[in-house]
């Protein structure tokens, strides 16, 4: 998993040493040239070695699964993972018994684990400096996120109706950005109410007001 930095007389030579050290082929690594070699004057003065950094290619899906398997096992959970992946997304749905602790209060634990997994898997992409290859990992437990979205959407409509009838604003409990967005999106086409967010995370909350 770890990259190596090698100096040699030429880039080719350095690469050869690095590949031998990592026990990989050229197709399995990313190469970054840190210093170009120079022969110097008459091959004596100012001679500079080539220096390269060689990083093994990471299979994000394998890394994601490996990391999550280890974590859930250490948490004492017996889970299976349903995986849905393409080039930009990896969606993992945990299935199993007693997975409540993996969700946490309002999805706290699930969000924390999702955040950590994103950092771990994208660590190597950041290092090689190519943000374009960033992969987004979404974790769910037995369809929890889907159900939560439906609950919040229903709640949003109900509260919007209340605001329209009473003329008084409704203030929601603090929510994370994804959940706030669900409320905003649900009510964006409503003519008689508007939604705003107020406060600072993690206490930022949605308010529904009469227009």
């Amino acid at each position: 998993m770890n990259s190596v930095e090698i100096s040699a007389r030429t880039v080719e030579e350095a690469l050869e040493i690095a590949l031998q050290k990592l026990n990989l082929t050229e197709e399995e690594v990313k190469i970054k040239i840190l210093e170009e070699p120079s022969k110097g004057f008459l091959g004596i003065l100012g001679q500079k070695m080539a220096k390269i950094k060689v990083t093994p290619n990471i299979d994000p899906l394998a890394l994601t699964k490996e990391f999550l398997e280890e974590i859930t096992q250490l948490m004492g959970l017996n889970v299976d993972m349903e995986v849905l992946a393409d080039n930009e997304y990896i969606k993992i749905n945990f299935v199993g018994k007693k997975l409540g602790i993996l969700i946490g209060r309002r999805g706290d634990t699930l969000d924390a684990l999702q955040y950590l997994t994103n950092l771990v898997v994208n660590k190597y992409n950041y290092q090689s400096g190519s943000n374009s290859e960033r992969i987004k990992i979404i974790l769910d437990v037995e369809g929890y996120r889907q159900r939560r979205e439906e609950t919040l959407t229903k709640l949003a409509y109900k509260m919007a109706k209340k605001v329209q009838q009473t003329g008084r604003k409704v203030v929601f409990e603090p929510m994370n950005p994804q959940e706030r967005r669900i409320i905003h999106t649900a009510l964006q086409d409503e003519e008689f109410v508007q939604t705003i967010s107020e406060g600072v995370d993690p206490f930022r909350r949605v308010i529904i007001k009469k227009v």
Partner: peptide
């Protein structure tokens, strides 16, 4: 933020 996420996961596992 990262420290908070680590704590959240560890606390969940320690329930």
């Amino acid at each position: 933020r990262i420290a908070r996420a680590i704590r959240t996961v560890v606390r969940a596992s320690a329930t």
